[in-house]
Write a protein that binds this DNA or RNA. Sequence first.
DNA 1: TTGGCTGCAAAATATTTGCAGAACA
DNA 2: TGTTCTGCAAATATTTTGCAGCCAA
Lengths: 136, 136
Amino acid sequence: MKRIIEEYKAKGFRLTPQRIAVIEYLEGNTTHPTAEDIFIAIKKKHPTVSFATVYNTIQALKDVSGVTEVTIDPARKRYDPNTKVHHHIVCVKCGRIGDVMAEYANELALPKNVLKEFTVIGSHVDFYGVCRGCEN
Amino acid sequence: MKRIIEEYKAKGFRLTPQRIAVIEYLEGNTTHPTAEDIFIAIKKKHPTVSFATVYNTIQALKDVSGVTEVTIDPARKRYDPNTKVHHHIVCVKCGRIGDVMAEYANELALPKNVLKEFTVIGSHVDFYGVCRGCEN
DNA sequence: TTGGCTGCAAAATATTTGCAGAACA
DNA sequence: TGTTCTGCAAATATTTTGCAGCCAA
């Protein structure tokens, strides 16, 4: 996440204590937190922090590719600081999201009619399953 | 969509004019409409229809596997009456969502650590691209 | 110093829910 | 006829925005 701080500076973003707290919270975080999760975590160090700041910071991080939005949860947006190519698996019982470190681009051949209509940029796989903890 | 009507009856759901209108609107629909899209469409025939009825009907359809929720759009839920195995591609410029009629389950080998943590049920691929209409 | 950021509050958007009356089966 | 659905309205949840004052650079 050090890289992110450098990119922040390079782009002229300000490194406020709140932003640093968000970056530190996300560093290495594999829980795919929601904006609220981030808000609650940051609040411990900065009790007056607001959602506006959390969303503002998330947006700034997205702008420098410091986080990506995870859309596997239809209820709310989740954020992932892991910028390596990877995919996700969600437990359909508890909603926990796991990372799937794999690269499938070459395996995913598209039908001709799609290739005719779109220039493909990328892809992401959502896996659905049941985690050990929920498998009673 | 005939099947849906049968399953509706079998489960004791009522076939109201509003529900039939939703089913007819969705039948063969490949536009991946939002709840609002459905609401607006149904309103033409049933001007007094409410969002409650639309969401109620969507839920009932989900219960009999008549529609699936599409999560590729982070802004809102979209619905898809196509119950055959397929995937989606979204134009990153206009947001239009296309169907990718393909089956990848066998191509998507999961890392051991994931298989250790989850029993996999299924998967869905989100493709990102630019559609011909948005190119240049 | 100063332009960007924070925090508060309000707004906007999306979805869900309670309930009285309507209507399907 | 009785149970479920509809429609209205209000509630809830999530995310965005306006703006005055603050602060990192």
